[in-house]
């Protein structure tokens, strides 16, 4: 198991896409901050005549108010909740798992393991390390570019809340990666994993949850059941910096449960299915 993990780690750090994804996250943070800064400058400098009558994209709050809210948690949390890390996770997991399957390398090692399920555990640990680096780099980038673009107006905010949010988001994203692993174990296809992950990242499942909620409401009009509260992707969207401690707690539990469920199901699938 330890050897398998060492192999996966080595492969991960020697793959070009790993570094490319890390570069992308820094670039995305840079561009989003650049755009925010540009928008705020435009609002501040726009002449009176242009602000009335013309069709334009505007920011409701005065620039000063927006700048007052610039904390590491609120800025960082909003991009995570909007699915940036989910999309990058999808690309990484699909490529990382797909490379072994596509090239047939898995046949070299799968037969020689005491249990094929170990392949899943080893990969989850490798993905967990990657996710840690990705989120760490993301947080550092948010802070660094915040300081560059907004100087002293950028603050860390409550570190305890920041830690709670990042912890919850980390576990939820790990569960999301677990979902992708299960999808890959079932389909053995990079394309299916990529498509499935991207569809969830852009919020397709929310329509399904709403539909199920409505069906439950039809069956029981007094019901206040909300499926989204118990699902990984909905919790990723909800667990922002402004969320309550109870929500972070709930997100952590949902994430942890789904990590276990997805890993067990993936390991069973890999164990039961023939290697091809």
């Amino acid at each position: 198991m330890y050897n398998l993990m060492k192999m996966d780690m080595r492969r991960m750090w020697r793959s070009r896409y790993t570094w490319l994804i890390l570069l992308i996250v820094v670039t995305m943070v840079f561009f989003s901050f650049f755009m925010v800064k540009a928008s705020l400058d435009q609002v501040g400098q726009a002449p009176e005549g242009q602000q009335s009558g013309a069709i334009s994209v505007t920011i409701d709050s005065p620039p000063e108010d927006v700048l007052e809210q610039l904390t590491l948690g609120s800025l960082g949390g909003s991009l995570i909740a909007d699915g940036l890390i989910m999309i990058l996770c999808t690309i990484f997991v699909a490529l990382f798992l797909g490379a072994e399957q596509r090239g047939g390398y898995i046949k070299n090692i799968a037969g020689q393991l005491p249990a094929r399920g170990l392949l899943v555990v080893s990969k989850l640990i490798t993905i967990a390390v990657f996710l840690l680096v990705l989120m760490g780099l993301y947080t550092l980038s948010v802070y660094a570019f915040g300081k560059i673009f907004f100087a002293e107006k950028m603050t860390t905010g409550s570190l305890a809340t920041l830690f709670s949010m990042l912890s919850a988001q980390y576990v939820l994203h790990l569960a999301f990666c677990g979902f992708l692993m299960l999808l890959h174990a079932l389909s053995r296809s990079t394309a299916v994993t990529l498509a499935g992950g991207l569809l969830v990242s852009v919020g397709l499942t929310r329509f399904v949850y709403t539909l199920i909620n409505k069906l439950i409401l039809v069956a029981n009009s007094a019901s206040e059941f909300d499926l989204g509260r118990y699902m990984v992707d909905s919790n990723i969207t909800a667990a922002r910096f402004e969320a309550t401690p109870q929500l972070f707690e709930q997100a952590l539990i949902v994430g942890a449960v789904f990590v276990i469920v997805y890993v067990v199901l993936s390991a069973l699938t890999v164990h039961k299915k023939d290697v091809c």
Binding site: R11, S15, R16, A99, E100, G103, G104, Y105, I106, K107
Partner: peptide, 9 residues
């Protein structure tokens, strides 16, 4: 088995 299992890159 079948074809050599390799990482092309």
């Amino acid at each position: 088995i079948e074809s050599p299992g390799i990482f092309g890159n």
